[in-house]
Design a protein around this nucleic acid. Structure first.
Lengths: 155, 155
DNA sequence: ATGCAATTTATAACGATTATACTTTGACAC
DNA sequence: GTGTCAAAGTATAATCGTTATAAATTGCAT
């Protein structure tokens, strides 16, 4: 944890940004809740627990900044709010998501499944790919199980 | 065109919705501009040319309705507005997009490039895929060309 | 200590979308 | 035809996420 904060601090400094206490508090929240896909508001409320005087705008600006530096990815699952997702250290591509339409859970896929598809796009469409976003909507393992059980209990 | 309107009319009726003049005008705009990815506001302005008395809320509700019936897909390229994209007749999956980071143009890929990836997700993650959204961000053929020419002129 | 630039705070403004209250339309019964 | 009713539409206000603004604070450099 401290190591990652330190590493990000260096990234900021290299672009002559500072790691202010507010920025650090925001980062810590993101690191602690790495599994989640928090909205700006979520982050704000969590940061407030650590640093009650922080303003919403600061959180937005910090997330924007981290987004520019590709430390977090700003994602959008179509529910009207932007969510922020910490990139894995050393992983340079965006990861994919499985969004469950039943329970709303979001699972992550770190593996890059798109190498092949990307090369098709580059050769067949002449499109130079810089980044990709892939989301699957469907039913997660857990909900499938629950639906199956509900089905069995009915009979 | 008339054929598609007719077909959609039947779909509406089968769910006991009516094809009102406002809904028809909205649909016609979507059919005429099938290539584009119009925002609700864009659609509203275009529909107004045909039917000046229409209200913005009606356009929103119509798009919402068409979205539920899977006649259009509501998509989001991360620029803060929802866009609406007519589904091809008989094509049941969402199509993919190539968004150019230079000029903002959006190209569509109708082919389903994800069959293989989907089966990996289903077997390895136990996730039942219902729909997918894939967007590539990068540089389109045209902008690559322009950048290359600009490069050559500099020397 | 003073000045300066970066940062933060608080709040107002903005833009997209949704909710509300009221009106219109059109099918059906009488 | 007239009355009734539900679906749909209009106009506008409200809401929500996000961004811009002005004033205050911080902290390094002179």
């Amino acid at each position: 944890m401290e190591h990652r904060i330190d590493s990000i601090k260096k990234q900021l400094h290299s672009k002559s940004y500072k790691l202010t206490p507010q920025r650090e508090a925001t980062l810590r929240v993101l690191l602690e809740r790495e599994e989640d896909h928090l909205s700006a508001e979520d982050v704000f409320l969590l940061v407030k627990e650590k640093a009650p005087e922080i303003g919403l705008a600061t959180v937005y600006r910090t997330l924007e900044l981290l987004s520019e530096l590709k430390i977090v990815d700003k994602i959008n699952f179509g529910d009207g709010v932007s969510r922020y997702d910490l990139r894995q250290e050393g992983v340079e591509h965006f990861h994919h998501h499985l969004v469950c339409m039943e329970c709303g859970s979001v699972e992550e896929i770190i593996e890059d499944l798109l190498k092949e598809v990307e090369s098709i796009v580059e050769t067949d469409w002449g499109f130079q790919v810089k980044d990709h976003r892939l989301t699957f909507h469907g039913v997660c393992r857990q909900c499938q199980k629950e639906k199956k059980e509900a089905e069995e209990n009915k009979t």
